[in-house]
Design a protein around this nucleic acid. Structure first.
Lengths: 335, 335
DNA sequence: ATGAAAGCGCTAACAA
DNA sequence: TTGTTAGCGCTTTCAT
């Protein structure tokens, strides 16, 4: 193995300078494209740097610039198939701009969410993106404040606290209801996901309004975890409590999968006796059978948009606020 | 908002020292628990640091220690549900040890894989974990060499190049075959996944041996992408080419889902006319219907083990090599 | 038990 | 066009 690829050989700018027969400053200038170096010198420097396999030390650079070229990315749970696509989009956009993603999962509690946002500070991330935060407003704003820049995905915030990438849940929910009513469903119940979800509240708002437009009203929403198990339990409860139900609007696709299991267990045919509609369009929605009708959220695009917005907020004083992305109704077999 | 939580107030060790009425050196000693400071002094320092909300600057620290407290984690594609669980396990173990994960997806080509391993160098990660690498041995070893420590998941490597966390694919494949034969399947075909997958070769080995033990032989394996679409195409080809097929062993669950789609489209009943067996036990395996028989890989544990092994290799000269984890046959409805 | 000096690698500011 | 100086925040080394 060649010496130059060995880890031990930590080449510094001084050694490149010596090899090229110039001062460290000249090397720095050439390598950073600052100009002000003769073509001939530049070439010597470049080839020396190349030969020695020089890599600028990010600590030294960071110490001067206080920039880590790193973005903190916080998701509730990467195991939920909704998030990987967002991360992929974010990563692509970040890499394209020379940034890397530092990833954390919240998992347990909203208290942990605050801790993790705080922990990013220690790593001196240049900015953070938080996906579907559960923290109450005041705590969230306080946690965000020390960061140089922040973007929230699927949660509103004042313009000076964070940029926002929003799915238009209210519109999506309204589409869902209209679709079900068109299909002749009259007795619609709501599996509402976590009680403290901002997106959940938006959905409920859209559902309420649209139902009212059709002179219908919904029974009390049933709250639950945004998981398969949560959806199953919620559906079981609804099935037991309400007779004549013919449609279930679910907080997300995972909940819808759970609801489907509950229907199957109860001998209720989908979509014949019960229509099911989800939210997100995670991969399983298309693969299950019957395939799930759902509101597709453009996850990849949201991740990309989040990074772009963050970078723009990092660079300039005058802060762009946000982007709203419309969900798209994917009619499949459960309705 | 209190001044001390403001980003602009970058508290340095010098300011803590001033507040506590001691020298910066004493602060450093106290904060790092190096001892050699009177209890009374320690207390003054601690409370000053606390009051000012002091955070050590990781760049300055890194510049001296050349440690970033960061682990590079490379996966082929986070969108593949096999990987998020591994990442979760790794993250838990890393956080517990005060490390964070820098995440990258390879996606395109194995050339890109080398680039990304290299890119981690720029961020001065303390070590890297690479999941299911596709690079050929020599290129992989060369890319790994400059790193201080490396662990491979599901790929062998010499002890001094990288630690390894292996799934015993050969054993798993052998279990799959035995299970199918027990169930009376005689005409078994193989959907083999990507041609250059190390784990794929192991599976083929186990399949070949076990089939031989039963005096059976398999038709040529069909290679394909490790995706739903890949599995569907491969299954279509097999269904068209071979008559009397009664079982399909798939490289992974995604392939098995594709195979299931192909069977359904061809009007072949699973498991009645065709048994299906997958590998990995991703969430959809249990949720689909009929639920997929598969070999569960203990993903969370693998992620944790990878980080622990990496940390141990970072700390000590004498390098631990690896861990082998047995897959577990989950018999469900497709066999 | 505490402090002063030096230096990690890089670059902004100034000088030649 | 090129080089010199100084300093980012911290910790190691060597005093006191």
């Amino acid at each position: 193995m060649s010496r130059t690829t060995d880890f031990e050989s930590k080449i510094t700018i001084a050694e490149v300078a010596r090899a090229a027969g110039v001062s460290p400053m000249t090397v720095s200038r050439v390598l950073n494209g600052r100009g002000g170096a003769s073509a001939e010198t530049s070439e010597r420097v470049l080839s020396a740097a190349n030969q020695l396999n020089y890599r600028p030390n990010p600590f030294a650079r960071g110490l001067r610039s206080d920039r880590s070229k790193t973005i903190g990315f916080l998701v509730p749970d990467i195991t939920n198939p909704f998030f990987p696509e967002i991360i992929r989009g974010a990563e692509d956009a970040a890499n394209a701009a020379g940034y890397n993603l530092l990833l954390s999962n919240v998992v347990e509690s909203s208290k942990r969410e605050a801790e993790l946002i705080d922990a990013f500070l220690i790593h001196r991330v240049d900015g953070i993106i938080v996906c579907s935060p559960r923290l109450p407003d005041s705590a969230l704003h306080k946690a965000l404040a020390p960061h140089r820049a922040a973007v929230l995905i699927n949660r509103e915030a004042p313009k000076d606290v964070a940029g926002t990438i929003m799915t238009d849940y209210e519109y999506g929910a309204s589409q869902a209801i209209n679709h079900l009513v068109e299909r002749g469903r009259r007795n619609i119940a709501i599996i509402a996901g976590p009680r403290n979800s901002y997106g959940g509240k938006c959905r409920l708002l859209g559902i309420g309004k649209t139902l009212a437009e059709h002179d219908m009203k919904a029974p009390e929403p049933v709250y639950c975890d945004p998981t398969v198990a949560g959806g199953r339990t919620a559906a079981e409860r609804l099935l037991a409590a309400i007779t004549g139900l013919d449609a279930l609007v679910c907080y997300n696709d995972l909940n819808a999968v759970g609801a489907m299991q509950a229907c199957r267990a109860a001998g209720i045919a989908v979509p014949h006796q019960m229509a099911l509609i989800g939210f997100d369009d995670i991969p399983i929605a298309e693969l299950m059978s019957p395939a799930l009708t759902t509101l597709r959220v453009h996850k990849r695009e949201m991740g990309e948009a989040a990074v772009r917005l963050l970078l723009s907020r990092m660079m300039t004083k005058n802060k762009q606020h946000g982007v709203v992305i419309e969900p798209e109704l994917m009619v499949r077999e459960t309705t």
